[in-house]
Design a protein around this nucleic acid. Structure first.
Length: 722
DNA sequence: AATGCTACAGTACTT
DNA sequence: CTGTAGCATT
């Protein structure tokens, strides 16, 4: 067991205060890079080691599986003991667990399945069709959003007041969707939370059991909690044992229902709550922090917090003003190359952008410069078509009434069951209130179906039943392998696709078998759920990584949103332009601009040492060339923190003349023999513009942007100044 | 059942 | 401009 001293001696004063705070309501306002996770981890260890609270009595809630995994491993290594019994998980993970444990009280079948967003949209689309509604007038995505946002505020269809046709119809779809899900034993993401909330409210004795059990609950990223998540916390923690950690300045998910106001609500609901601020930053240079503080200071309604560091000022923030997005990308690529030559690894560098569409031009530039990169986001492992196909077979083995799974694989691969036959099945199921599987088995005994359809169906039914036999007799990975081949999806992809594409499908399917193998090993110690059940849950609740962990060292490309929680020695924020960042759409929404500014704050505070901001004067967007002015966020950063680099070219000379030297340091630099922006020529590289220099006289190094050859560093004596 | 064509949309994202 | 969904055609 760890001793008290080592637990707190590596902490600063406010951190220590937070960790050792009595078991009464605590709000930790933790700035970026201030050791937030560290405080959570140490507080858990403190309660276990010093207050001798059982790990069994502690619950920690996070937003992502990644954060949950990291927290668990850090608690484990700090306590150097197993964390068995300690509940750490996402809101959804914990809700799921409670529903599995109490499925009867929650009125769910034991084999209920979790529906991911994609499944949900398909199901809603199906229902819109069943209701004979025009699917152009009623897009499934919109209705899904309608349903989810009501669920996220704790409302079932019946509770929605509907006065207009629009709401009335949406409500009707919602109702049908609800009963469809109930019949099929399907639970979507917000439903996990809503069902759990209802479970606790309707079963007071059960709720009490958990109140007694969880003496202390810790919630991470509290500023991102939405309505129902907060309600769930209230239902789970009526007592004083609660710690929440958050940062109002990093709330960037208002658009998906996150309620920053929950921070204030918390101090009212849990009274008296102690508030502790963590403002010492261990990540960035003071230059970066000053910039971040200056930007965020423009937001009103803050709880108030100012980051500081005992570290050095570091390098100024570079601001590169590019002519267009292609040139911007080239500057980024070439700068990345330079950092690399200065002995930084590509892994330490990140390029952040506001919207995904910006990544393409960057990629092209990086490929040209032969810089390895990796893009975050995109299709996740468990979302790939071949993986979903395989999983849907497994879901049917587990739960025949899973209509979403049935719809997906009944004719994948093709087995002669077309739209017409399916329509008969759906109609019958709808009328008799049966699942599709039940409808099929009943119709097989009648003469409703054609011979071909009949044989197709009986073959399908027999196949699933046989798979169940395999499931009962073999290990999970053997079942998965069997299902992939016996269903025909393996062969289907082999025939349909060739080369690279097929190879990756094959690899993914093999990876799925491997993943299943891990569940076989896990099952030997825990026997709460069958390996198949826990495998399916895992697939639904953890979408999996985008790619296998980077094999090669790469520059990281991602949106500003996905950069949250990460840090890099070198950060580029590109596309710092009005209408792009802050985004046009945000300007119409109340509070939109402030959320964009918080996003900018998040971006800046990712940088540890070097930060570069870039903007392009012209940019091709949706096929149209648009002019953009510099983002107000760049202008909110004090001039003395910025080293501006402006590309100048003959074709926009007029603007060049009107450009103001942005900072004193910049003026001083240009006072010497060299003038940033002046024309330069080189016998081999041709015409270019001076954009930076080091040293003086003939030995000075000049950075020149050549019209043809791009950006290069050259010795003064090799170039002709013009 | 597969392929080609047209219309349309295009902020951010985890569970 | 680019990707996608739905529809018509073969």
């Amino acid at each position: 067991m760890i001793d008290t001293k080592t637990l707190i001696q590596q902490l600063n004063e406010p951190q220590r205060e937070a960790v050792t705070h009595p078991e009464s309501p605590l709000l930790v306002l933790a700035g970026a890079g201030s050791g937030k996770t560290r405080v959570l981890v140490h507080r858990i260890a403190w309660m276990a080691a010093v207050n001798s609270m059982s790990l069994h009595s502690i619950l920690a809630v996070t937003f992502t599986n990644k954060a949950a995994a990291e927290m668990r491993s850090r608690v484990e290594s700090l306590l150097s003991q197993s964390t068995r019994g300690l509940w750490i998980g996402t809101f959804h993970g914990i809700a799921h667990r409670l529903l599995r444990l109490h499925h009867n009280d929650a009125q769910l079948p034991e084999a209920f399945q979790v529906l991911d967003t994609d499944d949900q949209v398909r199901l809603v689309k199906r229902i819109i069709k069943d209701l004979r509604l025009d699917d152009k007038q009623w897009p499934a995505r919109q209705t899904t959003w309608f349903i989810n946002s009501h669920k996220e505020e704790g409302r079932r269809a019946v509770a929605i007041p509907a006065h207009d046709d629009f709401t009335l119809t949406q409500k009707r779809i919602y109702e049908h969707y609800e009963s469809q899900c109930q019949r099929s034993g399907l639970v979507d993401f917000p439903e996990l939370l809503l069902r759990t909330l209802e479970l606790l409210k309707e079963n007071p004795e059960l709720a009490e059991q958990y109140h007694r059990r969880f003496q202390h609950v810790l919630v991470d990223e509290f500023q991102d909690t939405n309505d129902i998540q907060y309600q769930l916390i209230r239902a789970l923690v009526p007592h004083q044992g609660i710690t929440v950690v958050g940062d109002d300045d990093q709330s960037i998910y208002g658009w998906r229902g996150a309620r920053i106001e929950n921070l204030n609500q918390f101090t009212q609901d849990y009274h008296p709550a102690k508030t502790i601020r963590l403002e010492q930053n261990y990540r960035s240079t003071s230059t970066v922090l000053r910039a971040a503080n200056a930007v965020i200071a423009n937001n009103l309604d803050r709880l108030g917090k100012e980051l500081w560091t005992s570290g050095e000022a570091g390098e100024p923030i570079v601001h590169y003003h590019a002519f267009n997005e292609i040139e911007e990308a080239r500057y980024v690529a070439e700068s990345l190359r330079e950092y690399h030559e200065r002995d930084l690894t590509f892994n330490d560098m990140a390029v952040l952008y506001r919207s995904n569409a910006q990544s393409r031009v960057l990629e092209e530039a990086l490929i040209r410069e032969r810089i390895p990169y990796r893009i975050y986001g995109g299709l996740r492992f468990f979302e790939r078509a071949e993986i979903k196909d395989a999983l849907c077979y497994l879901r049917l083995i587990f739960n025949r009434n899973d209509d979403a799974a049935f719809e997906r694989v009944i004719n994948t691969p093709a087995r002669g069951i077309g739209e017409k036959t399916l329509a008969i099945i759906r109609e019958f199921a709808l009328k008799q209130e049966l699942s599709l599987w039940q409808a099929v088995t009943q119709l097989l005994t009648t003469t409703e179906l054609s011979g071909r359809a009949k044989s197709g169906f009986s073959q399908f039914v027999a196949m699933i039943n046989e798979m169940e036999q395999v499931a009962n007799q073999s290990l999970l990975h053997q079942l998965v392998e069997h299902a992939i081949h016996d269903s025909g999806i393996f062969r289907m992809y082999q025939e349909k696709e060739k080369g690279e594409k097929w190879l990756s499908r094959k690899e993914n399917l093999e990876e799925l078998i491997n993943a299943a193998r891990e569940f076989d090993e896990l099952a030997e110690e825990e026997e709460a759920m069958s390996p198949l059940a826990s495998f399916l849950s895992h697939a639904a609740l953890e979408s999996g990584d985008t790619q296998a962990e980077a094999e090669e060292e790469c520059v990281q490309l991602m949106t500003l949103h996905s950069a949250k929680g990460l840090e890099f020695p070198v950060v580029f924020m590109v596309g710092m332009e009005e209408k792009l960042f802050p985004h046009q759409m945000s300007l119409d929404e109340p509070g939109g601009l402030e959320e964009e500014r918080r996003l900018c704050y998040v971006g800046i505070t990712r940088a540890m040492q070097f930060l570069t901001l870039t903007n392009a004067e012209k940019r091709r967007l949706h096929g149209k060339e648009v002019h953009a002015s510099l983002s107000r966020f760049v202008r909110e950063i004090p001039d003395d923190l910025i080293k501006p680099i402006r590309i100048t070219r003959s074709w926009h000379g007029a603007q060049q003349a009107s450009y103001q030297q942005a900072s004193p340091s910049q003026s001083a630099r240009s006072a010497g023999a060299f003038q940033i922006g002046q024309n330069v020529s080189h016998p081999k590289f041709g015409q270019g513009i001076l954009i930076d220099f080091e040293g003086e006289g003939d030995t000075a190094r000049l950075q020149i942007n050549f019209e043809q050859a791009g950006i290069k560093w050259l010795i003064r004596s090799y170039v002709e100044l013009g």
